[in-house]
């Protein structure tokens, strides 16, 4: 069970010479097996929220619960895919995919089997011995996904995983993400800058306010996952609704400079 509960989460960063309040009283509940997309103005704390859910940033106030337990560090079945993939350039494709298993002390035979299966699922079997530097952007993204799959994660946290890709590759991988979710039914939280991507991959779409980030609105998107959803009127309607909500949060105007305090 991987429900996610953020209760009144506040994160204040100690910057070089000032305090930055990235999140303030941010509350969000995600059901087990639910795919949720998070969208918001740049710098509003989306990555921070994800890192708090992954147990890599400790909230200065409030709590994050995963599966009913307070998160105090990395959790065994949570997988995190970062903005720039977080791959290790000095390890081969296979080693990158198997890294999570190695770190968790899984036997080499098991590692080979599970990482091999995950790489096959994302279509990278032929590149096992290559280094990430030899892969295209889309392939690197597939590799990051394979690493998460090899862990058999029940909670998949993704921070703008597709933002560096061209439109075609991006759509292709959105399809792959959807397929994999359909098949595994894991809890998925996707941070994205793309309205279409949020509507395509989120059963609910969470809109955050400018920094300090709080939940501004949640858009229900029950049609998500339906065949050919991308070309239905409902899809366009949701996108439009989101665009208006984001405009109201000032996502398209000058970036708000609130939340910066002198220290």
């Amino acid at each position: 069970m991987a429900t996610v509960d953020a209760c009144e989460v506040e994160v204040v960063y100690e910057g070089v010479d000032r305090l930055v309040r990235a999140l303030e009283a941010c509350s969000l509940t995600v059901e087990d097996g639910e795919p949720v997309a998070i969208i918001g103005p740049s710098g509003c704390g989306k990555s921070t929220l994800l890192l708090a859910m992954a147990g890599l940033v400790r909230p200065t106030d409030g709590d994050v619960l995963v599966g009913g337990e307070t998160v105090s560090g990395p959790r065994l079945r949570t997988a995190l895919i970062l903005q720039d993939f977080g791959l290790l350039p000095w390890k081969t494709v296979f080693h990158n995919a198997a890294l999570g298993l190695e770190v968790r002390g899984v036997s080499p035979a098991q590692r080979a089997e599970r990482a091999g299966a995950a790489l096959e699922r994302v279509g990278l079997t032929d590149f096992c011995g290559a280094y990430p530097g030899e892969l295209s952007g889309g392939m690197r993204q597939r590799l990051a996904l394979a690493r998460a799959l090899a862990l058999d994660a029940d909670l998949l946290l993704m921070d703008e995983p597709l933002s560096a890709l061209d439109a075609l590759t991006r759509e292709d991988l959105q399809g792959l993400l959807l397929d994999i979710w359909r098949q595994r039914q894991h809890t998925a939280i996707l941070v994205t800058h793309s309205i279409e991507e949020a509507v395509f991959l989120g059963r609910r779409v969470v809109v955050l306010t400018p920094r300090p980030g709080r939940v501004a609105a949640i858009v229900e998107n029950p049609g998500m996952g339906a065949e050919g959803y991308r070309s239905t009127p409902e899809f366009y309607e949701r996108c439009d609704q989101l665009r208006r909500l984001l405009a109201a949060e000032g996502a398209f105007g000058e970036t708000a400079l609130t939340g910066v305090e002198a220290s």
Partner: peptide, 19 residues
């Protein structure tokens, strides 16, 4: 990102050093 991604996998300090 390199450090965070490995830590998110549950790596200890020693493992972060090694990998």
């Amino acid at each position: 990102a390199s450090v965070l991604s490995v830590r998110s996998l549950g790596a200890t300090r020693g493992q972060v050093f090694r990998h």
